[in-house]
């Protein structure tokens, strides 16, 4: 799994705005393949962690009601130059992580 994460972080006053889009199907297990009628098995991100300068600032638990290619945005106290890291883990054990420096 490479490059599934689009991560942005920029400083506004004393906050860092963090924005992430993760490329992931987030299958909820209810969709069917139209031709065969077979159900597509669930495949979704369960856990996500964001840290700032090595300290965890947000932990997310996601279920099947989060959209495909999930989006996450929040603001955290910090400043330009802070290192932001995001990693995720899905129900099949796939994972990915990305890190950037806040602009």
């Amino acid at each position: 799994m490479a490059k599934t994460i689009q991560l942005r972080a920029w400083a506004i006053d004393d906050q860092i705005r963090i924005r992430a889009v993760i490329v992931h199907p987030m299958e909820n297990g209810r969709r069917k393949i139209r031709k065969t009628g077979k159900k597509i098995p669930p495949h979704f991100i369960r856990e996500l962690i964001v840290s700032r300068n090595g300290r965890v600032v947000l932990e997310a638990f996601w279920g099947k009601s989060v959209s495909r290619n999930p989006y996450l945005a929040f603001e955290v106290p910090g400043r330009k130059g802070d290192r932001i890291q995001l990693s995720w883990l899905d129900n099949r054990g796939n994972s990915d992580s990305a890190r950037i420096v806040a602009r």
Binding site: V57, L58, E59, A60, F61, W62, V76
Partner: peptide, 9 residues
């Protein structure tokens, strides 16, 4: 979704 926040968000 369930978010735990640690950084003062």
């Amino acid at each position: 979704a369930h978010y735990r926040l640690y950084g003062g968000q």
